[in-house]
């Protein structure tokens, strides 16, 4: 189990080197330096970019500033997806550091949600946790928690406290041993080229015959194209936390260890780079 703990730790402390540059259309008093930051994969953009905002506000007039938003190569970045998902989906296999453009104007209302304060992120985060627990335990665990336990989960994420978060999150990952897993695996499959934001269905960790479901069986059910047929070139990469787990990895274990703090297993399916 020591290995598992290390995996959790690695997942938690995954970082993405990012270079924030101010959009050139923004009116500045003097030239804005780019700002480099290591973004935690499991967190949310608007939660960790206070410094970035502060940095760019120094060179801007107060009256020109509206709500800050981010964009990567023309795509507005949704703050309510975990940062790791955004990176894997849009920018994996590109040159590091990840270059994000910062905007303070013309907020794209059709693509992004407004994020006026951290309490909005907290509400989103907690609702994800509750949804995941509804799938896993019929909400029993999360409903048994007290208000301060919920707060502890959020504060753990907000302040990047691994031990504080996992002390509470451990309960959400428990399951009765005789059932061999959760009721359903909370997962979301993201694709770059799709109108649907993501695929999310009910999927049990164990088949009716008692066989353990793996990542492969999930994909076969949800997205068969992601599995290469024999002898064929691999067309898609299946990314979780920036890595490609083997298809025979058991789904239950993945859900327990490679889930984001919101308790969902976020899987990105991206086309294999051609070069």
């Amino acid at each position: 189990m020591a290995d598992d703990k290390d995996v959790l730790r690695d997942v938690w402390f995954g970082r993405i080197p990012t270079c924030f540059t101010l959009n050139q259309d923004e009116v500045t008093e003097r030239e804005a330096e780019p700002y480099y930051l290591l973004l935690p994969r499991v967190s949310y953009l608007t939660l960790v970019t206070d410094k970035v905002k502060k940095h760019f506000l120094k060179v801007m007039k107060a009256e020109d500033v509206e709500e800050m938003w981010f964009e990567y190569e023309g795509t507005p970045l949704k703050w309510h997806y975990p940062i790791g998902v955004l990176f894997d989906l849009h920018a994996s296999n590109t040159v590091l550091p990840w270059s994000i453009t910062v905007h303070f104007k013309s907020f794209p209302d059709s693509d992004l949600l407004h994020c006026p304060s951290n309490s909005v992120i907290e509400a989103h985060f907690m609702s994800s946790i509750k949804e995941a627990d509804a799938l896993k335990h019929k909400s029993q665990v999360v409903n048994d928690m007290q208000k301060k336990d919920h707060k502890q989960l959020w504060m753990g994420l907000q302040n990047d406290k691994f031990d504080q978060f996992w002390a509470m999150n451990r309960k959400l990952m428990e399951y009765p041993t005789e059932e061999g897993g959760f009721r359903y695996i909370p997962f979301r499959i993201y694709q770059t080229m799709s109108d649907r934001p993501f695929i999310q269905k009910q999927f049990r960790p164990v088949s009716p015959e008692g066989n353990v479901h793996t990542l492969g069986s999930l994909l076969k059910e949800m997205y068969p194209a992601a599995i290469p047929s024999d002898g064929e070139q691999k067309r898609y990469q299946v990314m979780i936390h920036g890595i490609e787990p083997l298809l025979e990895t058991p789904l239950q274990w993945l859900s327990e260890h490679l889930s984001h703090p919101d308790n969902f297993l976020h899987i990105c399916i991206i086309p294999t780079p051609t070069d």
């Binding site: 690695d10 890595i243 083997l246 990895t249 274990w253």
Partner: peptide, 9 residues
Amino acid sequence: WKRHISEQL
């Protein structure tokens, strides 16, 4: 698979 994952990480 486990080793694979930790190595990849």
